[in-house]
Design a protein around this nucleic acid. Sequence first.
DNA 1: TTGTAAGCGTTATCAG
DNA 2: CTGATAACGCTTACAA
Lengths: 358, 358
Amino acid sequence: MITIKEMAEIAGVSPTTVANVLHGRTKKVSKDTLERVQDIIEKSNYVSNMGARLLGNYGSRIIAVILAYSRSDRSNVIQDPFAGSIIGAMEQEISKRGYFMMLYTNPNIEECLHMALAWNIEGLILLGVDRKDYYTFRSRLDIPIVTIDTYFREKDTEFVNIGLQDYEGGYMMTEYLIRQGHKKISFLSMDPVGEEMADEFIDDARFLGYRDALEKNHIRYDAKRRIVLDGNVYVREKQLTELANNNFGDSTAMFFAADYLAIEGMNVFYDLGYQVPEDISIVGFDNIQASLQCRPKLTTVQQDIAEKGKCGVEQLMEMIKKDKNKCVNKRLPVQLVIRDTVKQMDGTEHKQKHETSK
Amino acid sequence: MITIKEMAEIAGVSPTTVANVLHGRTKKVSKDTLERVQDIIEKSNYVSNMGARLLGNYGSRIIAVILAYSRSDRSNVIQDPFAGSIIGAMEQEISKRGYFMMLYTNPNIEECLHMALAWNIEGLILLGVDRKDYYTFRSRLDIPIVTIDTYFREKDTEFVNIGLQDYEGGYMMTEYLIRQGHKKISFLSMDPVGEEMADEFIDDARFLGYRDALEKNHIRYDAKRRIVLDGNVYVREKQLTELANNNFGDSTAMFFAADYLAIEGMNVFYDLGYQVPEDISIVGFDNIQASLQCRPKLTTVQQDIAEKGKCGVEQLMEMIKKDKNKCVNKRLPVQLVIRDTVKQMDGTEHKQKHETSK
DNA sequence: TTGTAAGCGTTATCAG
DNA sequence: CTGATAACGCTTACAA
């Protein structure tokens, strides 16, 4: 591990000069020395010591990504296919810009803060933490922070969040179901955790879209069709089994707030001997890979997960560079993906055209 | 961000004393000062500056995890559900021990080395890199390295690898198929990339198990049943379509070297109107989540991915602590998971008992 | 038991 | 255009 000092010695110049060359401050160096020094740098395989950068507070080039726990009932979100994709996308963006990614998951906020401070990280990406926790981070850390998929309140300010057009997605999908002749549509989402207000939860924007679409189409929203699923898989399976055996709660279509729930539902129904979509139409939200791998293929709302990650890193970098801190609440667009799990209700059945699988 | 020096000043002692307290060298400090200093440390929310640790070469506490590219045809392995799970498991183990995880994916080895050197990382975990690349890392880096899922040659030494009983898995599954009455079993795996020898590829240990199981059971291995699938999805789909339309190459069962390939196959066959397992029996390897989510549920060979990650970190930590470097080639056990994609060939069909889905 | 001082490698400031 | 120097915070060897 050669140092600047050593290279300076070899070149017969001062460390400052070598540093100037390294940082492209070519104006400050004569052509003669420039070339000589550049040559030496190349040959000696110089690697800058990040420790010195850190200590001198010249920018650690570390972006920390902190994952919240309990997205579903797994112990660690990262096993979620959603998390895997987004982390991959972020890593690439971070890497591309010459930064480094530190991945950290810890339910204890104090320890997260500790980590952020110890490493003098330049920016922080919070994945799926709630707004309260965000404000804790924000009050204790003086660095740019971007949240992904956090739900803020109307009056909240001073945050940068990358989210999704959940409301629009819920609306769109519900309208689609209505166009297919469905009038009895239930909406299923997971039990929101914690004592936060319901309107802060991601599932709920989807729900609101669903409800508004119904009303816009003169279908009265019936509260009994809003089904809250338990956080525990086994309990959930029991709930779904009961539903199925009670004529699906008198619904012809079920709108699950997430693909993985929809697929769980499909499997439970399949195992009970029900046919999708003949006995019940099912749709999801997210377009995870599994939604294409299951049979029949799931009709769902597509979100571009990689884009979300990329967008988050872009925002963060802008904040790091410009040090400006305007409030951003970006909602990425969604798209209907029509596949094979919805039955047309106009008397005759007919095969829907569906996308070619890629 | 309070420093040791500042705390020392408050306590009216020297920085050394504070450092001694911080490091639990209680013997070197009088009870009196100990308590006073401890109190101050608590109150001042001290966070040690990792930059100083790095610079002084006192251990960075960073473990870098480097992912190889091109496990399948995706640009970045991390989107692979396999990678997501194992990274999650590793992160927890690393965190638990007070270390930090830096995640890095870059096809360029030089840049990977650069990163490792710049950060003075204490240990390295290589995920899915080939042995040649491993030796490059090893020759340039003087730190413990653990590989996961790298295949080494007989004569290779000086490596620590965590792998799987691939051979045993291949053998086991093939015997199972034979016990179910199958005699015409094909083996499908992906085209090995690069100019390395075939016997270094993970799929191939599985293949050898398959071949040996056949021969042990007096079934002659027929080379035409060893099918190499292309790296490109579209080409692969074409291959599978052709196979199906040619009576599945005169086989009654297909052993795919990986679940995601098996599921791909099932979907192609389903879309062509074939029934699994009535028309063709299919088995996979890995027991990824999707193998349980697809219908019919896939019979496969189970590996404990989280255990693999945990095991890798454990090995690495041992090497960091003890600085001993014995060669380890741990192969984690596998297990048959019998589900619904294999037909019993003894004339009468009968429903196999299958595990309760969890 | 406590304190002093050197050193890690980089960068910025300022003087030549 | 070039160079000397101080500063960042921690650790440890050694001195008191």
